[in-house]
Design a protein around this nucleic acid. Structure first.
Lengths: 203, 203
DNA sequence: TTACTTTTGCTAACACTGTTAGGTAAAGGA
DNA sequence: TCCTTTACCTAACAGTGTTAGCAAAAGTAA
């Protein structure tokens, strides 16, 4: 591999990230709805078709961000889980981390859950369901077994869906119909819902 | 009011509903994404600008459907509530009705929650929050008071959000990432989540 | 019936989308 | 120097929502 070929793929990489960071800036300023190929092209001061030398189409750009979003949230959830060894505390920490991710990274969350950029099949870039599953199923099974309800496995499978529903539902309701409630109240609702959920697991 | 003027507003009304029913048909067949003014115009065999004589813009059409959706779901919820006098059973019935509405009327649900037609500010046609609130807050307060936790009012306020979060979250997760699970399992998850929630209210 | 006004509907355009065909000029390799 | 590949652009196509302006029809009044 010649030195000049190296420079070339480095330049190509640079252009790719240039497109992505520029697109991200547009999204942060104006939202997913108003992200267009032409706007990116204008911003990076190249003509439109250049974008297509680096991405197959617009969806490919969105999927790239989707991947980033999922990687980030999973990193956050894993580190939250690592903050404790008590299964109940782990669940609570995971919920808090997910909540924080959603509101500190509205753009990612909206993209990942189709609330802002629907022209995109996000499932194409979703990680294996097992990644999420493994994160919360373990603590749940522990809790359920400790409480000695038989059939902890299938029981946890049900609770798994409930857990994410509470989180996702609460967040998306807040995002779609922005709260006239205070930030504090929202956090209270989350705490109440999740601690209630965990209490339910134990009993 | 002359007889001819009457016919005119009747014709105008007929055209309006013609536009709406045609649009609805397109949505059912091809989804919100591919509903366009031109497609409606083609289908009703009129030119494009005619649509604008009956609706300010595309959003106005979507809001019309949004209103219909909210009216329908509220009707369903009210009738579900009326099916019992026991507050716990009322909550369960409301949850079931909401669940059924979402999957029997995917198009409405997607529109109302911005999961399919995001170019539309649905909150413009959302009913007063109090309509939903009144439906479930009453039964909740009853349950909480019966269990003698002090401060039933604020307690129910928290639970109110949890209730809708479970429902909305569960449904939207199923819709965004369609289940490889069976229909039966989904219903089981809903039942478990809601009965768990109600049990939590009582304890 | 005639003259005027209102309503109805159309064609054609504007300003945007995503996407691509085809050509030009520069860069790299022989 | 010649040739090939890459980089980049202009211009277009097929869509989107929306509107200006005109022609014909329908209704009203004399």
């Amino acid at each position: 591999m010649s030195i000049i070929a190296e420079r070339r793929i480095r330049e190509k990489e640079a252009m790719r990230t240039n497109i992505l960071t520029t697109a991200w800036q547009i999204v942060k300023e104006e939202g997913w709805q108003s992200l267009s190929i032409r706007k990116i092209a204008d911003a990076i001061q190249y003509s439109v078709p250049v974008i297509y030398d680096y991405f197959d189409n617009k969806e490919a750009i969105l999927l790239e961000f989707g991947k980033q979003g999922f990687e980030l949230v999973i990193k956050k959830l894993k580190s939250a889980k690592a903050s404790s060894t008590d299964p109940a505390e782990q669940l609570k920490a995971i919920a808090d981390a997910y909540w924080a991710f959603a509101f500190r990274n509205k753009e990612y969350y909206q993209l990942m859950w189709g609330m802002g950029a629907p022209t995109c099949e996000m499932d194409k870039c979703m990680p294996e369901r097992s990644v999420f599953r493994d994160l919360v199923m373990g603590p749940m099974i522990e809790i359920i077994e400790k409480a000695k309800h038989g059939d902890a496995e299938t029981n946890a499978c049900l609770k798994y869906h409930t857990f994410w529903s509470i989180l996702h539902g609460l967040i998306s309701i807040k995002m779609v119909a922005p709260a006239d409630d205070t930030e504090q109240l929202n956090k209270l609702v989350l705490d109440d819902a999740i601690t209630g959920f965990i209490k339910n697991l134990k009993s």
